[in-house]
Write a protein that binds this DNA or RNA. Sequence first.
RNA 1: GGCCCUAUCGUCUAACGGUUAGGACAUCGGCUUUUCAAGCCGGUAAUCCGGGUUCGAUUCCCGGUAGGGUCACCA
Length: 479
Amino acid sequence: MNEENKKVVTRFAPSPTGFMHVGNLRTALYAYLWARRNNGTFILRIEDTDKVREVDGSIEHIMKSLKWIGIDWDEGPDIGGPNAPYKQSERLELYKKYAKILIDKGLAYADPYTEEEVEAFRKKADEEKKPFLYREYRPENPPIWDGSKPLRLKVPEIKSYKWNDLVYGDLSAGPEALDDFILIKSDGYPTYNFAHVIDDLEMGVTHVMRGQEFISSTPKYLSLYDALGLEHPHFATLPPIMGKDGHKKLGKRDGAKDVLDYPKEGYLPEAMMNFLAFLGWNPGGEKEIYTKEELINIFDIGRIGHSGAQWNDDKLDWINKEHLKKLLQEDLEKHVFVWLPKELQIKKLIPIIVERISKFSDIKEMVEKGELDFFYKRPEYLKEKLIYKNTETSKIITNLKEVLDILTMTEESDFNKDNIKIILMEIADHLENRGEVLHPVRFALSGLDKSPDPFILAEILGKEETLVRINKAIEMLKV
RNA sequence: GGCCCUAUCGUCUAACGGUUAGGACAUCGGCUUUUCAAGCCGGUAAUCCGGGUUCGAUUCCCGGUAGGGUCACCA
């Protein structure tokens, strides 16, 4: 089969050791986009070979995270597929089979030392300021491997490796990167180093995408492929995502959040996908807002960057806002309403809410601050608040009366913000200062120092309520 | 410490030898309907340093510096 015609197969292979954070999610996203771009296959595989660090519920949590952002898989532990099973803990016989092959070839052997002995070697090397290499202590006559001891690879050839990476280009490493690493642990489970190579081969993975922390161990994998006499897949190494300080790889310990915290805060999945895709990659144009389908059409491994990208909440908020505005044309209602108490679940409020938020959780803040109370509650306020700067009270009363008269004559059907604006501005423009009428009207309607403009307020409240509130303000001022 | 990767405005980045070094976020200023947002318009702001190669380097090479990664019976 010709290389170019080979169907693209990518995978995301997390270990179930806790919640998923955004760094992992980007790795998954790139692998996903590449598979979809090429009409290929995207596999979800669970690397549960570390029984000590495993956390219950992680697998469900990971799948939920992927689904939230809009990543679906063609094969995986929940849906099966031609390469089942998709949990490494259920594939132990397979690894044993490959282990036997290596043993028979004389390229794997049992590690006779205790952990303490190996630790002593390591310490000694450390004191001599030499890098520790197990292969320098390789036993002469290792015992037959019975599963109770770790099984190690015997590196077939100590040499420098050069290889090509789809992102970084030509990479290389010296022989000191090579060692007799453990294939199968004494508990019977394979190491990541062994299992992922076997599974990628068995599952026909064509493109291995992972973070650049794996660059330095790539020669080890290469030596394993050599030992097995097999070709390795394409490697595409992703640049790291740095934390907000810009100096450390983003990790759980420095505040990388659980992916599922973002929906709780009201971020849109498409916005998160858009943001994540652009963290370390960009298509080259000046367009920055992309839908999932557009990303799939344009994603290109060759345009992934080489240097670490810093996490930026401001940009995420902006991208979210842009996606929010796109949604505004459609069914924003159900998204917004879940953040509002019953009495505020009013369609008319949506535009003024959306223009003031970048993510849905901001609505919570608006509600808590009482910024929307004006709608169902006649405001309480001190009458002094109605006075614009040093305008005389009598003048304010006159102005409000004029507004009241004109709005009373306005037809119900014309009571919208555009008309109201024309009417109020007509009055305001004859005054020394527009605030002499606009401020008291706005304040009479909202009772807030900061609020939307009086025109939209009047429209939302409706003719009757608007007149009541203006009238009330006039009465207050008279006293 | 050994090995490896990286280096353009504060941040994400574009420019794959020739540009007034472009865009976006942030920031600052202005405008719009009094306020707060939003929106629109505009400003400030970058090629880490030193050598080469070249008619010409952000771009190619070497060195330095800085940052990051990795050296597990973790992935």
